[in-house]
Amino acid sequence: MFDLIASPFLDDHLVTRPGSEKGLKIPFHLYEELREAGREPVPQWLTEAAWKRWGLALPSRPTEEAVMVREPSDYDYCRASYELNLGCNYDCEHCYLGLKKFSGLKWEKRKQLLKSMQRAGVLWLQLTGGEPLIDRQFKETYAYAYRLGMMLSISTNGSRLHDPRIMALLTEKPPYRLTISVYGASAKRYDALTKRRGAFKLFEKGLTAAQNAGLPISLNLIVTDTNADEVEEMKAFAIGRDLPHHVFSNMAPTIYGGVESVLTQSEEHLRTRKPFTGCHAGHTFFHVDPHGLVSICKVGRDHQFSLVKEGTAGLRKLGGIADSLQLRTGGCSGCMFGQNGTCGTCRPLAKLYQESQAPLNSYCRHGGF
């Protein structure tokens, strides 16, 4: 099993270590040296750099065994997210997925999909859902993506992290980030929001297992009208566990344009978004749903196409799709906030809000921000 990954990254070249967010930027000639080293010993410069950056003492073995060297790609993609399955063991009131159906690709198609991502240059891959850890092929999918030399992150509710088989996998092949959603500081609020009795106990059990294993954890504190009275307690919980945390309180419509998730919003905690100045969705990043359909991101799902059927070459049209979806048309035409660069909502997200007939103040400055 390799210790490090050397990979092109847009116009640069990086050396990364699974399980760590730290990396090394290296010049092209050193990347080429690693690419051509084969059975030669690990170069001295990398041995020294690995110890300085990660405290990693590289064993005396051939470079090709210690370092996974990713081949250059003809594409400009470096990041992607993959919904393994929309199914979930919770029924959270705020969920943007709407109907959480258990369906997706069979194993051979998944392997084909992941290989296409690798050929596209994807180095950073987020595995999400639904709840990815309950997917029947999670362990195989995770291990295969890891072997392909991808730096993996997982977004989860944490309810299955206590499973020794999952913990063994993540300990042997660590993600660079494990993001766990938190739905309350007490069993009463947590179980009410997830609509699952005993969910809070499973969350605590899973979080403890992940912390004991030394995995790189961050917490997303989800705030809705149901648990809004526990915001400070949720923050204290994260601080007490000595874990980084982010408060997520602005609810979005479902991917089908449903308003039900928006209606769970705690008005008190509705935040003014920062001005939207553009993003790399569709250009250096893309999203894949459980059936292998590609979109520019999790929100902008119009004009999807099958990465399994079209292969990596299909991604060449994604940039044009992204540019077309970001045009401020329809319900936002003539808006002065969009013209002067102070609007806080990207066009694909605004379109979902408009289709769902969500309250204007949930996404638009005309609504009172």
Score class of each variant (00 low, 15 high):
residue 292 G to V: 09
residue 352 L to S: 03
residue 162 H to W: 12
residue 206 G to M: 01
residue 13 H to I: 02
residue 84 L to C: 09
residue 121 G to D: 05
residue 185 A to R: 01
residue 36 E to F: 07
residue 100 K to H: 13
residue 64 E to Y: 09
residue 312 T to H: 03
residue 56 L to R: 06
residue 304 Q to T: 14
residue 37 A to V: 02
residue 237 F to D: 00
residue 165 R to V: 09
residue 124 W to G: 03
residue 255 I to W: 14
residue 88 C to V: 13
residue 203 F to K: 00
residue 104 G to W: 02
residue 11 D to T: 14
residue 56 L to T: 05
residue 323 D to K: 08
residue 297 C to G: 04
residue 245 H to N: 08
residue 50 A to R: 01
residue 42 V to W: 00
residue 255 I to L: 14
residue 129 G to P: 07
residue 23 G to L: 14
residue 125 L to P: 05
residue 223 V to P: 08
residue 22 K to E: 15
residue 79 R to L: 12
residue 229 D to A: 11
residue 176 Y to S: 08
residue 14 L to R: 10
residue 268 E to D: 13
residue 160 R to H: 11
residue 271 R to A: 15
residue 9 F to A: 11
residue 323 D to Q: 05
residue 114 L to K: 06
residue 365 R to P: 10
residue 197 R to A: 12
residue 217 I to V: 14
residue 288 V to R: 02
residue 315 L to H: 03
residue 29 H to L: 13
residue 263 L to T: 07
residue 55 G to A: 05
residue 285 F to Y: 15
residue 128 T to H: 03
residue 133 L to F: 05
residue 145 A to Y: 04
residue 315 L to M: 04
residue 334 G to I: 07
residue 118 Q to F: 11
residue 17 R to Y: 09
residue 94 H to K: 05
residue 78 C to Q: 05
residue 290 P to Y: 06
residue 109 K to W: 09
residue 292 G to E: 06
residue 359 P to E: 02
residue 330 G to A: 08
residue 11 D to L: 10
residue 241 R to E: 11
residue 159 S to N: 04
residue 221 L to C: 04
residue 140 E to L: 03
residue 275 P to H: 06
residue 259 V to M: 13
residue 272 T to V: 15
residue 335 C to M: 05
residue 276 F to Y: 15
residue 59 P to C: 04
residue 251 M to L: 15
residue 102 F to L: 09
residue 107 W to E: 13
residue 358 A to W: 05
residue 86 L to K: 12
residue 39 R to D: 15
residue 50 A to E: 07
residue 275 P to M: 08
residue 245 H to L: 00
residue 56 L to Y: 01
residue 347 R to N: 13
